[in-house]
Write a protein that binds this DNA or RNA. Structure first.
Length: 893
DNA sequence: ATCCTCCCCTAC
DNA sequence: TAAGGTAGGGGAGGAT
């Protein structure tokens, strides 16, 4: 688990404890460097200073300026005796970090607007008891444990802050405090919190299971991206699992890749009833019992809210469902009888009236007919002794992280599906290990179980579909191998609705066409399916019901949209409240866009409006009830992530719809047609970069502020480096003539590359690289034949290609590989020259990373022409290596 | 044909 | 009480 600390550069993966540790370390460094001292003079808080994103903010004006500059919502998320850290991360993220206190945006903005000096007392008055997050303050000295939560992530002892405050305030103020907070408290008991409340969004997101599920899923997709990008990964731990496997001494029949379709081994891995398993770690007494994770405690009767008409509302749901099926299947509505999940819900005040959703339930509960997403009321009817446990999103994250890191030890050929589920291409890994699939599965599942305390299931097949179906078969806590000899008979009896991509509607439709299983659907022609289900869906089903799946695993993902929506607790009195909420939601969206470093061109507003005949009071408390949904979008001339633009557009769209704010039940904002903030749209081949020199310059200036002050890269004329002629000219391969032969050295523009230092960027990049000595020792490499790469500060000289900062070079390369075009000679030339320059500058560590990056990418492309490019470039590199070091670069084959 | 917008569907 | 989010793929139908 060393990876947690090693592999967490500041890479946008904020919702993580590891990130926090890095952040803390950074802040402490600043603090000890004396920055903290001047903060004590801060006029923002009495004796307390504020950091925003790691910068010290000495005055309200400066904070205001920073907020204007960076946008977003600022939250105070950590407090000690000496300092407070504020951040513009979304506060759901902040809360996720097992942090402490969240200062609500309104409080800060109000105070700043009013040009007031903030003080801590105000904050105490402002907050109300319900929105108050856990207190988790640190202190120096005497330990007064106020909190039980998350000692793990917070190494600091705790102080009781309220006491400290009352010491310094007089009695009058103290009693004021009490009055105000008890008033707020009282108010909260009387009136349910709705989206009108300024705290609503953060509190809602903090409690929303679906929100957490999707955010975490996105996090892990990004995590896999980052791991693949940042690592010149060496699989040290592969040998460990091999040892384990050998010690298992398992003599069962050994499966290898030849037993699977296409000679590929695709693994699908999924935690078993994830939320429950994690929850049971702390509650061993509940093991073996029917358990469900839900907000509701279950069993308590509630008083009936006036105006609720469950019968009418449920009938509306049902009718709508029937209508869809009828339309899809061409059967008259009267002939359709369907089951919905509202069927066994009774009135609100009855024993089985709870409409709290079950996020996850144990296999014991499933045995009684309970399933995920079911309402608590219905579940209690099926199983009155159902045990409920609360959510613990922190824990889920920790387990998910362990899961991902465990797999990533062995291979990075991972496609993240969600926080508890992924596809892994094990073909190469198992070749390398030379162990059987079954042994690997056993050892891996055992490792995960021992590390997380939670069971998981794995399925193996020759493609992703087979792997996935195998997992379903394997559950719970098992493994299953869909080998090519059993695929056909297995798939024949698979239920159509168990196919990924076949949901409620599609399976109803297929049923109406007379098919329930894959075997039955195999008799249907492709044309027929495409006619009834559409071109793509039809084709997909045609393949799926035969166990085929042409879609390869996708390791690298690109985000295509950013959105935030709230379909709970939306109850407006007037347009002012509605627009105020739109403003807050825009801030949330903007905040997420900043996190993902994207801007968007197309803004879509989604509105859920109470349907005409639906009861005004919804069956589910604060739910959206039966609604009509409207989606409207505007496309801007240029991409934006500016909160005022977004707000303006959504309010304008909203006004155009001319909807009574009282009827609104849900609101969402989505940004599509995204562009990355960092990368200018680099889509085509590399030589675009030559044409657009200005954009290169802009990029450079943008990055200048990150460099240390003594950085003179822009000013100094670089020493002209003589290109070392390789001792051996590369042979000419196929279509690609060696560019060196023609040009002798790099193109003129490349001489602009300054041999400057940009150490902090580079050091950041170098963090967490494994020690190469160990790797090569493991592999039994003879040292003297190769240069063993070791990061050394003095080696790091070069800034990058054409003045591009180093990390842009990889993006550039990636754009090149992804361009889908034939590699061009000038580009190959450029890359070779750049890499040779790296050798000359003795910048081998990064060269090694770059070479590995190139090799991995080219392997993904898997095209002969690119392999030739690779061979050529590597040869150039090795020639230069021999010239400079008299040795070759060690390249891990 | 190809694109765009608005929807629907699916997955977790 | 309850916390019904979010991203991606794709189809229908109109505009070009």
């Amino acid at each position: 688990m060393h990876r947690r600390d090693e592999k967490f550069p500041d890479n946008g993966f904020e919702a993580w404890g590891g990130y926090m540790q890095a952040k803390k370390a950074k802040l402490e460094e600043q603090f000890s460097a004396g920055i903290g001292k001047e903060c004590k003079q801060s006029n923002l808080f009495n004796g307390i200073s504020i950091y925003v994103n790691g910068f010290t903010i000495p005055s309200a004006d400066e904070l205001k300026e920073l907020m204007a500059k960076y946008g977003g919502v600022y939250h105070v998320y950590q407090r000690s005796e000496d300092f407070i850290i504020a951040s513009n991360l979304p506060d759901t993220k902040v809360k996720n970090m097992s942090l402490t206190k969240v200062v609500k945006p309104q409080w800060i903005t109000d105070s700043i607007n009013a040009q007031r000096v903030l003080d801590y007392k105000e904050y105490l008055l402002y907050r109300n008891s319900k929105s108050q997050a856990r207190l988790n303050f640190k202190q120096i000295g005497n330990v007064d444990v106020l909190t039980k939560s998350k000692e793990k992530f917070d190494p600091y002892p705790i102080v009781h802050v309220e006491n400290k405050i009352s010491e310094t305030t007089n009695d009058q103020e103290c009693s004021n405090n009490k009055n105000i907070s008890s008033e707020i408290h009282k108010k909260n008991e009387d009136i349910a919190k709705t989206a009108v409340d300024p705290n609503f969004i953060s509190e809602f997101y903090n409690n929303s299971r679906l929100h957490h599920i999707s955010q975490l899923g996105a996090c892990f997709k990004q995590y896999v991206n980052d791991l693949r990008d940042n690592s010149n990964f060496s699989f040290i731990t592969r040998s460990n699992i091999k040892k384990t496997i050998l010690s298992l001494n398992n003599f069962s029949n050994k499966l290898t890749k030849t037993d699977f379709h296409n000679g590929k081994i695709i693994m699908h891995i999924d935690m078993d009833c994830f939320f429950v398993s994690v929850g049971l770690r702390k509650r061993p007494e509940l093991r073996g019992k029917p358990v469900a994770v839900t907000h509701s405690k279950g069993g308590q009767r509630q008083s009936k809210r006036s105006g609720v008409d469950r019968i009418t509302e449920f009938n509306l749901y049902k009718q709508k469902q029937v209508k869809k099926v009828s339309k899809a299947a061409g059967i008259p509505e009267e002939d359709i009888e369907i089951e919905t999940r509202v069927d066994s819900i009774s009135e609100e005040d009855s024993q089985f009236g709870s409409m709290s959703e079950i996020a996850s339930c144990s296999y014991e509960a499933r045995a009684k007919g309970i399933s995920n997403g079911m309402f608590m009321g219905a579940a209690l009817r099926l199983c009155p002794d159902l045990q409920t446990i609360p959510y613990d999103f922190e824990e889920y994250k920790e387990v998910a992280y362990t899961l991902y890191n465990t797999i990533a030890q062995y291979t990075l050929d991972i496609e993240a599906v969600s926080c508890d589920e992924m596809y892994v291409d094990c073909t190469e890994l198992l070749d390398d290990l030379n162990v059987s699939v079954n042994d690997f599965a056993t050892a891996l599942r055992e490792e995960i179980k021992s590390k997380t305390g939670c069971p998981c299931s794995t399925g193996f097949g020759g493609n992703r579909l087979q792997a996935r179906l195998a997992t379903k078969q394997a559950k719970p806590d098992g493994q299953f191998f869909l080998t090519s000899d059993i695929v056909d008979s297995f798939i024949f009896s698979v239920n159509l609705k168990d196919l990924p991509g076949v949901g409620r509607q599609t399976s109803h439709k297929l049923e109406s066409l007379g098919h329930q299983t894959c075997g039955s659907l195999q008799s249907v022609s492709r044309n027929f399916l495409q006619k009834h289900l559409g071109n793509k869906t039809g084709l997909q089903l045609y393949d799926q019901c035969r166990g085929h799946d042409p879609n390869p695993l996708v390791y690298q993902t690109v985000r295509k949209s950013v959105s935030a929506e709230v379909n709970y607790g939306i109850r407006f009195e007037n347009n002012v409240q509605c627009e105020d909420f739109l403003r807050q939601l825009s801030i949330e969206v903007q905040s997420r866009m900043q996190q993902f470093k994207v801007m968007g061109k197309c803004i879509t507003l989604k509105l859920m409006i109470r349907a005409e005949n639906a009861p005004v009071e919804t069956a589910k408390f604060m739910g959206h009830g039966f609604c009509d949904v409207i989606n409207k979008s505007t496309t801007l001339p240029t991409a934006t992530n500016d909160v005022t633009t977004i707000t303006k557009e959504v309010i304008s769209i909203c006004r155009k719809q001319n909807i009574d704010p009282k009827e609104m039940r849900g609101i969402g904002i989505q940004l599509t047609k995204l562009e990355s903030i960092n990368t200018k749209p680099v889509k085509r081949s590399i030589d675009k970069f030559f044409i657009n020199k200005t954009s290169v310059k802009t990029e450079k200036t943008k990055l200048d502020f990150q460099k240390p002050e003594n950085d003179t890269s822009v000013l100094t004329t670089p020493k002209k480096q003589n290109i070392i002629s390789p001792k051996k000219q590369s042979p000419i391969i196929g279509k690609i003539k060696s560019p060196i032969l023609k040009t002798k050295g790099r193109p003129p523009k490349s001489t602009k590359v300054p041999a400057s230092t940009s150490q902090n960027l580079i050091n950041k990049f170098l963090q967490g690289q494994p020690l190469f000595d160990e790797v090569s020792a493991n592999k039994g490499i003879k040292r003297e034949e190769y240069v063993i790469v070791k990061p050394k500060q003095e080696e790091i000289k070069q800034e990058g290609l054409l003045g591009l900062p180093w990390d842009k070079v990889r993006e550039l390369l990636r754009a090149w590989f992804d361009s889908g075009q034939m590699p061009k000679l000038c580009d190959i030339n450029l890359i070779s020259a750049y890499m040779r320059e790296m050798v000359i500058n003795k910048n081998i560590h990064k060269l090694y990373i770059l070479v590995n990056f190139m090799r991995r990418r080219i392997k993904e492309i898997n095209d002969d022409i690119w392999y030739e490019v690779q061979e050529h470039v590597i040869e150039e590199v090795q020639n230069a290596m021999i010239a400079v070091y008299g040795k070759k670069l060690w390249i891990n084959d």
